[in-house]
């Protein structure tokens, strides 16, 4: 079984700490980034297929980051987590390629379910078509 890696992108340190602690406790390997640019940098080096992105980021916002990720890594499953629902509409998020959209404060159990379903989906895709290029860019 592959390692379950999750990438968290949020500009607030305490939110990164929280999600990092929570997902680690749930058995995932977590990496965090404070900006979209940092996230793209991490993705160039390591493989992450499940991500939770804050939308209101300094520099490149979460919507554009998601578009970029989906372009570079089509198999990635991304979730939006935002504190300001009025700034970004659900339809914008779906259009950018987000799997789902959560408004802070969100229960950790809800995020755990999301992560679990994402990895199950990845597993199923992998088994359905072992020749699919899950890992290719």
């Amino acid at each position: 079984m592959e390692e379950k890696n999750i990438l968290i992108v949020d500009d607030e340190q305490f939110i990164r700490d929280l999600y990092s602690q929570a997902f680690s406790r749930a058995g995932y390997k977590v990496k965090t980034a404070g900006s979209a640019e940092e996230a793209l940098d991490i993705l160039r080096k390591d493989k992450y297929l499940v991500m939770f992105l804050d939308l209101n980021l300094p520099g490149m916002n979460g919507i554009d980051l998601c578009r970029q990720i989906r372009k570079n890594y089509p198999m990635a499953i991304t979730y939006a987590v935002t504190g300001n629902a009025s700034l970004f509409e659900l339809s914008d998020c779906r259009d950018a390629g987000f799997e789902d959209y959560f408004i802070k404060p969100v229960k950790l159990s809800v995020l755990f379910e999301a992560a679990d379903s994402a990895f199950k989906k990845l597993e199923r895709w992998k088994n359905n078509n072992s020749s699919s290029k899950l890992h290719s860019k």
Partner: peptide
Amino acid sequence: CHELNQPLQSVSGFSEL
């Protein structure tokens, strides 16, 4: 709300943990 939701996430999340 945006300003409130961030610390709220922290309090609710850490208490859940």
